[in-house]
Amino acid sequence: MGKITLSQVTKSFGDVQVIPPLDLEINDGEFVVFVGPSGCGKSTLLRLIAGLEDVTSGRIEIDGAEATELPPAKRRLAMVFQSYALYPHMSVRKNIAFPMKMANVPEDEQARRIESAAKALNLTDYLDRKPGQLSGGQRQRVAIGRAIVREPAAFLFDEPLSNLDAALRVGMRLEISELHERLATTMIYVTHDQVEAMTMADKIVVLRAGHIEQVGSPLDLYRAPRNLFVAGFIGSPKMNFIEGQTAAAHGAHTIGIRPEHIEVSATEGLWQGRVAVSEHLGSDSFFHVHDTGLADVITVRASGEIGFRHGDTIFMTPREDQLHRFGADGLRL
């Protein structure tokens, strides 16, 4: 129903190639997240799939059928935009009905689908309001409702949660995940927030400058990042990278160790440093350690009970089995 295949797809704006040749397969029913820093081409890639941008070369197939030249409306994809892109002069009901009205769906069928979408998204009481009278989360749900009623082959989300406040974002994240479980439709989700990527995805596609750096399940990426970029991008706080002699001792150009894989102690350990900033979250504490002689700053994560303060001396021991080793070319050894 919603298998999407990109083969050798490129995109140039003038002389600038933003997407170098790229291959990607998205299976039916998968929740795929494109993640990467801003300007990495993830939104462009989504718009290529949507048909809002023309590919410069290459092929896009949807369900095995050539879709490269198809106009957006014919691709049976529904998109949820970052700004929600609701039609401000139409009521919620009319917004949701719009794609069906354009497709000449019979009135009673329209009403039925609006009813069920509104029920699923808790919008029943708001159907006659205008988008301007809704809160951010409600607008987001209307945008999703407008996508659902088209019964598309796949949903495309373009940073849909970036305009919401933190609490709402967590809630909507759950709702979208639940929606995916219920509909079992392919979803492609673009975000720069790796927490969203980790929590929602079946498959994460990490992009940098249009290149796919790695494709895999969230835990694959966390446990075995293919290169330094993925290692640094996935995981929060970031992985620590250490070069020089310490790395050479492990037979690598760079070694990486995640903050949560370092044991801390006030009295003894492999590495020594001075705490510069400590962040206490209650459940966890993060310490930013300077003067280790290894890197500018080493971040460690410890349980919330451990309290170091600014200027304290701290001893750290990395867990050997959790060390990531990278060669001089940045690739995993």
Partner: peptide
């Protein structure tokens, strides 16, 4: 006019 609105309408099948 927000260009995303026009794009959304295009995705929604509006000529």
């Amino acid at each position: 006019l927000d260009s995303e609105q026009l794009e959304a309408a295009e995705m929604d099948g509006a000529k």
